[in-house]
Every structure is written in C-alpha cells, then in structure tokens.
Design a protein around this nucleic acid. Structure first.
Lengths: 131, 131
DNA sequence: GTACGTGCAAATATTTTGCAGCAGT
DNA sequence: ACTGCTGCAAAATATTTGCACGTAC
C-alpha cells in the first residue's frame, strides 16, 4: 500500500511565509517570521507558521538551521551553502565559498555508508562585534 | 569590577557524568546520561545533569551537538572532529579525517570577521540502514 | 567556614497537535 | 465536492531555575 502523494495548496499564509523568508538575509526564527507575516495576515497563528515551515522544508523550498541554540532558524535559500555564526550577537551570515563536495566520498568510505550532503558552520566574531 | 573566577568542585555527580560521556561512542542525550548515572547515583536529578553538562562544556571537557533535532547530544571528546549523522536511525558517528583548518582564514576574509573554529556534519545513511 | 553543588518541583521556551470550520483546486 | 489548511487552545518536549539543605575544598 503506497500512499498517494500529498497535494500542496498555495494559501495566502504559505505564500507570505515563503516571501518573507526569501526577502531577508537574516536567517530568522519562527517567531520573527510570525511577527512579520502578521502585518499582512493579522489572524495567522504561530501554529500555522510552524506547519508551513515544515511543509516548505519538505518541499525543498527552504532549509532549517539549528546552530547551538534552543530554537531553529530558517533560510529562504534552499541551495547548499555554508554559514558563519557570530558567537557574540548570534547573527548568521551566508558564506560565499565553493562547496567541498569531494569530501563526501571520502567520508562515505570511512563510515561505510552513503553520504547525501554535508553542512559546515564557522564560529567566531563578526566585524561589528570585534571592536 | 571584574568578577572573581568561579571555582569548580569535582562532585560525585559531575565525575560520573563525565565518565559516562567519556566511555561511550554514542553521542547521547541528557536524558540517556541521566539514566546511566542514576544507576550509580540513584537520587541524582535531571536538573543536576543539565547543570553539569553546561559546566563541563564551559570548562572545555565536552562538547554539545545539535544536528537537526529538538534536543542536544553530547560528546565526551572535546577535540574538534567531524560527525556523520544517519538520517534513518539518527545515529551519530565520529569522522576520522583531517580538519580543514586552512578554510577558516578564507572565511574570515570573506565575512570580514574572526573565525575561531568550524563544524562539519555529513548526512546520509549508515551501513546498517542501507539494507 | 565558605560558597559551590544538589534534589525537588515549578517555571520557561519552543514546537506540535486535536478539532471544527474555512478555502484552494 | 473533496481534502488540505487555518485559528485557537491545549499538550508535548526539552531545558532552566528558585530555594533550602548538603558537601567539597
């Protein structure tokens, strides 16, 4: 019994959440997204935001990040890329450097499994927090 | 007013938590550690486990990992190394490959900040979950 | 003896979910 | 019309914290 593929509808809420995420470089939290979308869709609920973030992630339109926090951040750019996290202010920035794709094969060899993708995060202090 | 450095005591609880963590390759959760330590120190509380994990992390004896989960995992090996995460069974394994330390400088250049360290996680299926 | 650590329980913080009505296709 | 989606509120999950007592140094 293979289950019929789920059909996704493009609601006003889902549309807005995706737009907000695609128009910021801030890698925001669910709550920040909620506050933004609320300005256009006042009666939206936080539960709806979470549900849509999960669906958008499953559809491959966004990605979820959780770097050393108790909460998740979301990225409107689904293409693999690395991140820099400032340990002082918590800011997350995109890193514009080529991916180390060759490493995946080596890792697959040492663990004896299959590697689909990898992630890399750099930690330190951003220029604003160096003084 | 610089505040006097905090002096850490080695209690039976802290000792046991560190030992449990150093004697497993499982990258366990706080709750798993709690259950293990409970066998030696029955009246220990989960709060104490969390408090000690934070202290041990601050002292640089262990590290905290949170890879796409709602909970943290802990690693008794404080030396930097990469991890492989099985997307099927959730297992976390150590990767025994050289660190890409040269990359830190390049990233520092592109973000205009200072890079202290980086992390890298590989995602895929472990040999047990390939069938 | 001092002050850090502990157990306990309650509080916080983040995310998920049941349900009845709404709405995209 | 069918079935996915929403708002609301309550529940679930993971972690933190206040307090009075205990204990390492």
């Amino acid at each position: 019994m293979t289950n019929r593929p789920r059909i996704h509808r493009m609601t006003k809420q889902r549309q807005m959440i995706l737009e907000v995420l695609q128009n910021t470089k801030a890698h925001p939290t669910a709550d920040w997204i909620y506050e933004q979308v609320r300005q256009a869709v006042p009666r939206i609920s936080l539960g709806t935001v979470y549900r849509n973030l999960r669906v958008l992630k499953e559809m491959g339109d966004i990605q979820e990040l959780n770097y050393g926090s108790t909460y998740s951040r979301f990225d409107g750019n689904p293409a693999p890329h690395y991140h820099f996290v400032c340990q002082d202010c918590g800011k997350v920035m995109d890193i514009d450097l080529p991916l180390l794709t060759d490493y995946d094969e080596q890792v697959a060899g040492t663990v004896g499994g299959q590697v689909d993708f990898h992630r890399m995060e750099f930690y330190g202090n951003c220029s604003d927090c160096l003084t």
